[in-house]
Design a protein around this nucleic acid. Structure first.
Lengths: 340, 340
DNA sequence: GTGAAAGCGCTAACAA
DNA sequence: TTGTTAGCGCTTTCAC
């Protein structure tokens, strides 16, 4: 591969100034005489000079690139977050290296290491689990990380999310109030922090207030996909549940269609509330009642927070680490057609 | 930001070898005595040395990063392609800089320039339109580009896609054969290459064989979204069409639900075929009959092709440019419930 | 306001 | 098999 034809040096020579001056005008440094600036700018345009970001990155130790770990780009929930992240990143002139972790700890670790090797200025992590090794990787590094759209078991990492516990509790209460004495909870892994610490406790709290106690047989695990939701139908029906709160819209859509195909009328025979208010909620028939959450904003706010952290990642040594690093965005509730 | 603590130099000193040797073992160069290699490897582990990819990129002029332009990550069609791209990229140890173009020419140009500034080794472009400026940008650059999942108006750029013309023709024929004399075509912009050169001709060919001629009033434009499809319902109905082939599943889902909400029975009163076979086709009720296409593979093959082009981008000067650069993947057809 | 010069951390001839 | 030495293209003191 030949070397870059027009470099900062070419411009400097052509404009009869030093590289430093060219660098200054390229970077908007005000300490340049207007006419010098104009001369340089003219040469830049004439030569169609494009600064090499790699060289700049090496010299300045900033790449204006952030790493974004996503479990699965094709998941509506995460892709909507990614959209918010990308928009704000673009606004701040950052690029994002986006990689799927496939919700796999090993892959996630590998991906993060690769991003760090590329000297990203910051990382946004999406995912409901964070392995011990990954946690170490993050804490032993100086680059800022923010977790978007989940709750994870690491006090040190800032997160941007909604209050999953409250949202779950409200949804379950709603279902309970409609006279459903058996309300199922369909979630991902029971072990992940978002479920163990937020959703199951929220579910239990609602149950408790209604005088019920938690019945493990009413908690179902499924990965985020339509198919797994659909396949869960019989089990859910067998459990005797007459209603369910589902933590993923894809799963919920599957369960809904499964219910319908099994001859259960929704919402007459079975009430369903889903959690993410993605476009699927409007597409299924009946439309799904859902907890609403500002997905785009969760992404956008995460990226904004990250830019702040990247701005002053010197002051990270625990001193002021006590102030709340978790931003909680408001959630809502949208009644549609899967509830009575 | 402090400088990197442990560099190749640190390792070299500690292992009592030269930087070159360390570089060799890091890069798997076989010309290293096994015991030297071991010694170096031990020090690397001990010091937890991580090569700086930016420095490597500057020195080697390869970043092992590819740029991926996507109109909208939240679109099921494109995100599925992106998944295929990312998987193959990971397999080849490439990272991807993924940026939304919002299907906007200006943004796309900006994005591509930014990627080039970052010295990506190649670009995968997704999108149905390519502006004159962008075309120039591509052709004046030496970095390889492949267009995934669309047909664009540039002979010089390799594409990976299905035969949109044949697929459209087949779908329309199917509809025509069912006795629908008025078959609508719902697409994006009539002006984009994929529609102007592939889908509309395919539509027209089917019409012609059925003894009909093209009626512009039966062609509808809509952007890729559920809402636009839904809002199109009345117009489609007013046109007198009794069937439609739709080029995007989101639009198709919208139209389908719109039809249902307007009291039209699908498929009894109106037959519908959609084009992308995304998960939506299974989620709507009735399920949508669709042209099937290997979305994941389109992405995967694109990335594979790109790796080849990146491997030998020296031989690009038209000499062997005559062999087919367009890979056409097979498409199929899945009858579901929106056709009789 | 401008320039000279020293790196940033690594690769890649070229020698040895 | 290993080491020496130039860079890669840019930023950034530090002088002037």
């Amino acid at each position: 591969m030949q070397k870059q034809s027009v470099t900062i040096y070419t411009v400097a020579r052509e404009a009869r100034v030093s590289m430093a001056t060219v660098s200054r005008v390229v970077n908007g440094n005000p300490n340049v005489k207007p006419e010098t600036r104009k001369k340089v700018l003219d040469v830049i345009k004439e030569l169609n000079y494009r600064p090499n970001a790699v060289a700049r990155g090496l010299a300045s130790k900033k790449t204006t690139t952030v790493g974004v770990v996503i479990p699965d780009v094709t998941n509506d929930y995460f892709s909507k977050l990614a959209l918010g992240i990308d928009d704000i990143a673009s606004m701040y002139k950052y690029n994002m290296i986006l990689t799927n972790s496939d919700a796999d700890d090993h892959k996630a670790l590998q991906v993060v290491r690769s991003m760090m090797a590329k000297q990203v200025d910051g990382i946004i992590f999406m995912g409901h689990d964070i392995s011990e090794e990954l946690r170490q990787e993050f804490s032993s590094s100086t680059i800022p990380v923010v977790v978007a759209g989940s709750a994870i078991n690491d006090e040190d990492l800032p997160t941007v999310r909604i209050n999953y516990q409250a949202a779950t509790k409200e949804a379950v209460q709603y279902l309970l109030n409609h006279g459903n004495d058996k309300v199922a909870l369909v979630i991902g892994s029971k072990a992940s922090t978002i479920n163990a610490q937020m959703r199951i406790p929220g579910y239990e709290a609602a149950l408790k207030e209604a005088g019920q106690s938690l019945d493990e047989a009413l908690i179902f695990e499924a990965h985020d996909s339509y198919r797994e939701g659909y396949d869960l139908t019989e089990k859910v029906l067998e459990s005797g549940a007459k209603a369910a709160f589902v933590s993923d819209d894809g799963i919920a859509a599957g369960l809904l269609n499964g219910l319908t195909d099994h001859g259960s009328k929704v919402p007459a025979d079975f009430e369903l509330i889903t959690a993410n208010d993605t476009k699927l909620t409007e597409i299924t028939r009946p439309k799904m009642t859902s907890v609403t959450q500002p997905l785009y904003d969760i992404g956008a706010v995460s990226m904004r927070l990250l830019t702040k952290l990247m701005g002053n990642n010197q002051a990270t040594d625990g001193e002021d680490g006590d102030d709340e690093q978790n931003v909680i965005l408001p959630h809502g509730f949208e009644e549609r057609q899967t509830t009575r």
